[in-house]
């Protein structure tokens, strides 16, 4: 299939400079006007894991997310891209109700996990957040040991029935996050003493130790070198076999490599959603094209 081919070629050639992607894009037909903020493209899928309908988020008076509707499919990696401050983190945090913790933040609309409306009044957020895990934009390890950082989630949820089982979970999580080899001889040292990139991977390990079914990743590779990035990307591909992943990234090659669908946000609007291959080769919206070709601004 041609889509697959394009994805494959993109995957191989992530070193291709931006202009190349751009020049390929420009050959295509006329784009939707910049002023039009209706979502275009493939918003909805056949068997969604999460469905978001007419979601609006306000920080006090500020309207940060404007009427966004999108599905997140089963075993899918959805990438969210867009300029800084366009609301990617805000939207991501809606999906496990992390916005509840921000004073003055208001969410309207409907977000469903399977058939459960997660913003319903008497929903318990604790099992929801165990099910929908999150890796935050800024690495935020606990000021505890590396081991305790990863073990904390399994401990409070009672996922391990013995010490050795817990140790296995910790090791497995650290391995999958690509951190095991660097820290296996100092698990008792504080997680806050790691480098920025190591902290980021520690937070990934901590999130996957709870075995969430949906993982929200907010720029998980922003501080990682290419090798660690590759490890995390492998992890994402592996997790996709069983889980659903939403990833925010500023690295378009990464979005192209790991995701099936990509959503482009612009100043709080969801401008375009579509198969990743198509978004990067033939975006329908002028704003999307401007962004991925680096002409935004």
């Amino acid at each position: 299939m041609s889509t697959l081919e394009t994805t494959a070629s993109l995957q191989k050639g992530f070193a291709v400079p931006r202009e190349n992607i751009g020049s390929r894009v420009q050959k295509k037909s006329r784009k939707i006007d910049r002023e039009n903020r209706e979502t275009v493209g493939l918003q909805f899928v056949d068997d969604p894991r999460m469905t978001c309908r007419a979601v609006n988020v306000f920080y006090g008076e500020k309207h940060a997310i404007k009427n966004v509707s999108i599905d997140i499919g089963k075993n899918e990696v959805l990438a969210m891209i867009g300029p800084s401050g366009c609301g990617k983190s805000t939207f991501l945090r809606c999906l496990n109700r992390m916005n509840d913790t921000i004073v003055g933040c208001r969410v309207t609309g409907e977000i469903r996990l399977d058939d459960l409306d997660i913003y319903e009044k008497n929903i318990d957020v604790v099992p929801l957040r165990a099910q929908v895990g999150m890796v935050f934009q800024k690495p935020n390890p606990f000021p505890k040991s590396i081991y305790d950082n990863v073990a904390y989630g399994p401990k409070i949820h009672g996922l391990a029935h013995s010490r050795s089982e817990l140790a296995d979970i910790v090791e497995d999580s650290l391995r999958r996050a690509g951190l095991w080899n660097e820290v296996n001889d100092r698990l008792d040292q504080p997680g806050t003493g790691l480098s920025g990139g190591q902290q980021q991977r520690l937070c990934i390990a901590r999130a996957i130790a709870v075995r969430p079914e949906i993982i929200l990743m907010d720029e998980p590779c922003s501080a990682l070198d290419p090798i660690a990035t590759a490890t995390v990307e492998d992890l994402i591909s592996e997790l996709r076999q069983h889980y659903t992943i939403v990833i925010v990234t500023h690295n378009m090659q990464q979005a192209a490599r790991v995701s099936q669908r990509t959503a482009y946000f612009h100043l709080g609007d969801l401008v375009e959603v579509g198969h990743t291959s198509r978004i990067f080769t033939n975006p329908a919206h002028q704003l999307t094209e401007d962004y991925i070709t680096g002409r935004f601004g």
Binding site: N96, M98, T101, V125, V126, P127, L128, R129, A130, G133, M134, F136, K138, N140, P141, F142, P143, Y152, G153, I156, H157, C203, R206, A207, A209, V210
Partner: peptide, 13 residues
Amino acid sequence: PPSIREAALGIGA
């Protein structure tokens, strides 16, 4: 720091 609170809540504490 609020990030510590978020970290704890984020894994379902």
